[in-house]
Structure formats: structure tokens, C-alpha cells
Design a protein around this nucleic acid. Structure first.
Lengths: 234, 234
DNA sequence: CCAAGGCATTGACCTTGGTCAACCGGGCCC
DNA sequence: GGGCCCGGTTGACCAAGGTCAATGCCTTGG
């Protein structure tokens, strides 16, 4: 069990742990489990009893629902430095995961026991406020998602997604490297892979973007925003 | 300022207040504002600075987003005994309401100052855990909503809504009294009023329900579940 | 080096639900 | 009582995006 000294610093990237006292964080680190997942491996399934929550160390984990027909809707894609399934702890008696979780890539996640964490919350207010912040952010994200699913169309969602992927502080012809297969993005945006492909084609024909496999060059950010009627940031 | 003695009992119906100590609850009650809203009156708008959260005493309040074109999507309809906008308190520096809130009926809501409540949270763990429970439930509700928007069709959503409206412990030919105008239900389900009307017509023709204005008689619960492929409860 | 499987693309077609317009009926106000 | 307004219904039409099928391409493995 090698313990690199900066794992505390890594965990603090998550809102959940950001303001936690050093001793508390250390006691959590001592009890965490380091889990390796091959690509496509299931971490947990919807309906299973929830006893742990997770932090992504590396890789990508998708949280998704399945329809009875087997169609998949990705609710969220968890990236390194993010925690997930921590809200389930407060769902009352029947604590069950409300979604499925599966590794997209080969991944490593840290697992924390609910019991340990709950005990810690009971004696630490900063920790609790960190959790409240995490949950509040997730609520906001879900409301935004509902809005874009109901009040906006597929092109809007894809364009908004692309614009979100632009690294900060870039002004001219930004480059976007898709971090997941296009099919995964399609599910996240609630469209079919065929439709995703067609919309990208349309944008390419319009001279707004260039597509080379996973790599997309945005030729005209403003025009792209305009086609989807997205107001400028801020 | 008449203060009925059982306002504490009323507040305890909300998860947020359920397990709060009596003195804490009393101090909140002393600082609340009782707000009367006419039907259609706006309580707050998306983007406004958030300084208070609310408890519905009577009436119905809709939380909704607007598209640039003016289309409306109701995210949630708040009923007596429920709290809303309490999660906004933890969104960091820029605390702004993420949705609009407007009274559907003539309503009365109690308003609580964030500052007062936050001070109380800092010294009370039961209160904080009540809040975590509220937020956790709301997260779950939103995930369910996303699932039914993306993996299910309009008929499913309407049927699921109707089945939710059936009072507990009723077995035969349940009666459902719609608590809001049909247009409001349509927006909540993310369909057009015309479509809602047509789906009800289809179900009526199929002999599954009877519609008399706001009052709906469900003739065959099982068949209704089957048309939408909804598994039996539990 | 070739075969196989997975992802992406493209085309043809179809379905769901949205749009637009007309109409109905009840409550309300003058 | 008459006009009107609002919520709801109905019909005709339309369009966005889903479905199904064929094909290409790239990776992987024998």
C-alpha cells in the first residue's frame, strides 16, 4: 500500500473535500480503497444497495440509466478530481444507487465507506458544507440539463457541449479534443449517434468547424454560438 | 401578526425541518415572513440574487425555466408542506436563483432569510442533515425526470403522472382530481397542451380512463400501466 | 497480411409530437 | 343578455430526429 504524500492535495480538488481539516482528510485517506477498473467494467448498478461513494483518480466513469428496451442515457460523465454517489447517503432508509456506473476507459477510483464519512460529518461542519456545495452544484447541472432537453434542440445541445469543451482563456480558432467516443457524447446529449454525425456534418459544411476524427477545430466561435442562439459567456 | 401555535408542526412536514430542535425551529419561526401571492404573481426570477428560501403554506408555486422564445418548462410544482430554493444557499459566491418562481393559485408562502438559517446550520447537525435529505431527494427527482424525458415518450410521462396522482391505498377505479390546469401539467411533462389533450383522448377511446373536466376516473389501472410499459409499484 | 469487430458515416424512410388555425364552452364583466 | 376572454379540443399539416440498412475505416489479433 504505497501512499503518495499528495493524495490529500488531489482529493481537495473536489468541492466535497476542499475545506476539510487535515486530520479528517487523513483519516478518510487511511480508510479509502483504491479500485482499478478496465474499460467497460461496471462499478455499480442502479438499485444496488449503496454503501460507498467514489472519487475519480484517473479515467472516465459514466453514470447512466437504461430503458427497458436497453437504450442508455448518460446522466453525467465523471472526470478525474470529481466525486459521485455521495448524495445517495441521505436518501433515507433504502439507500440504493439511482443510476448505473461504468468505466469508459481503464480507470482508477477511490472508494469511501459511507459509515466512516457520516461519522466524520457529524463532528465536522466544514465537511458538511463541502458536501452541500457539491450537491447544490449537481442540482444546478441537472436543471440545466432538463432545460436543454426540453427547451432546446439537438444542434443547440451539441454546440453548447462543444463550447464547454473549449479550454479557458483561448480566443482564436480553439481546438477541441473529444475525450470520449462520439457515441458516448451522443448518449450524454440524448441524441442518436447518427444524428450527432449529421449535425457535425452540417456544421462542417457551414464552415463553422473542422472535424478530424476526435479532434475538432472551431473556425468561428461567434457564428457557432449564433446558429444555436447561445448568448456569449457571462 | 397572529401566530397559531401549530406552525411548528406545519413546518415539520418538510424534511428540511422535520428533525430540527424545538428552540431552533422557534427562532426560525420568529424570523419568517408570511407572503401572500395572487394567482400568477411572480415570487422571484431566474438570475436574481437569492437571499431567501421558501415554504409553501397554501396554494401552488411553479418553478420554471423560459427559453429565449418564451416557451416555458416547469421543473417542479411546489405544494403545501414543501420547501424550495434552499439549495441555492450553497452555490458559492454568486447566489442567484436558477429558475423562476410564480404562484399558480392564490398562495401563501413563508420566507426565511438565508443568513439566519445558515447561522443555525453551523450550530446544529440535525438541521443540516435535514437539508441534506431534502437536496438528495430533489436530485433523485431530477434524475427521474431526465430519464423520462429522454428514454420515454409523452404517453409514458402522462400515464406515470396520472398514476402518481392516485391517492395511496386505493385499489379499484381510482379517481384523480387534477390540481392544476391542464396547460400547467403539459409544461411539467414537457409536452404541448394539444398533445396532452390528444393523449387523454386516446386513453379515453381505449376505455382506460374517463375524463370529466379536471376529474379523471381510471377504469383499468393495470391496462394503463401496460400501455406505457410501467412496472407495478415496488 | 488478412480477417473481424467496433465505431462512425451516409442514405432512405418513418414516426412522434409540434405548429397553426379554427372552434367550443363556460365564466365574467359591462 | 351579449360579448369576450381563456382554457381546452380537434383537425390538417410539418419537421426534427429516430430507425434501419449498407458501407467505410481503423484497430487488433491470429
Amino acid at each position: 500500500m504505497n501512499q503518495p504524500p499528495d493524495i490529500a492535495r488531489e482529493l481537495r480538488r473536489a468541492y466535497l473535500f476542499a475545506d476539510m481539516s487535515e486530520p479528517h482528510l487523513q483519516s478518510l485517506i487511511n480508510s479509502l480503497q483504491d479500485i482499478r477498473l478496465d474499460a467497460g467494467k461496471t462499478l455499480f448498478r442502479q438499485g444496488q444497495a449503496a454503501e460507498r461513494f467514489y472519487f475519480v483518480h484517473e479515467g472516465l466513469v459514466k453514470l447512466f440509466r437504461l430503458s427497458p428496451e436497453g437504450d442508455e442515457k448518460i446522466i453525467e460523465i465523471m472526470r478525474p478530481g470529481e466525486t459521485f454517489a455521495e448524495a445517495v447517503m441521505f436518501m433515507g432508509n433504502q439507500r440504493r444507487y439511482p443510476v448505473n456506473a461504468e468505466a469508459i476507459n481503464a480507470s482508477r477510483v477511490y472508494a469511501f465507506e459511507q459509515k466512516v464519512f457520516l461519522n466524520l460529518l457529524r463532528e465536522s461542519n466544514e465537511a458538511t458544507f463541502g458536501l452541500l456545495g457539491s450537491m447544490s452544484r449537481r442540482l444546478h447541472m441537472l436543471v440545466n440539463q432538463i432545460e436543454s432537453l426540453t427547451l432546446q434542440n439537438a444542434t443547440y445541445r451539441l454546440v453548447a457541449y462543444l463550447l464547454e469543451q473549449i479550454p479557458r482563456d483561448v480566443k482564436t480558432s480553439p481546438e477541441v479534443q473529444l475525450t470520449t467516443p462520439k457515441g458516448v457524447i451522443a448518449s450524454r446529449l440524448a441524441i442518436q449517434p447518427e444524428t450527432l454525425s449529421r449535425i457535425l456534418g452540417k456544421l462542417r459544411q457551414g464552415g463553422l468547424i473542422e472535424v478530424h476524427g476526435n479532434h475538432i477545430t472551431i473556425r468561428d466561435v461567434q457564428a457557432l454560438r449564433d446558429t444555436a442562439h447561445i448568448p456569449p459567456p457571462e
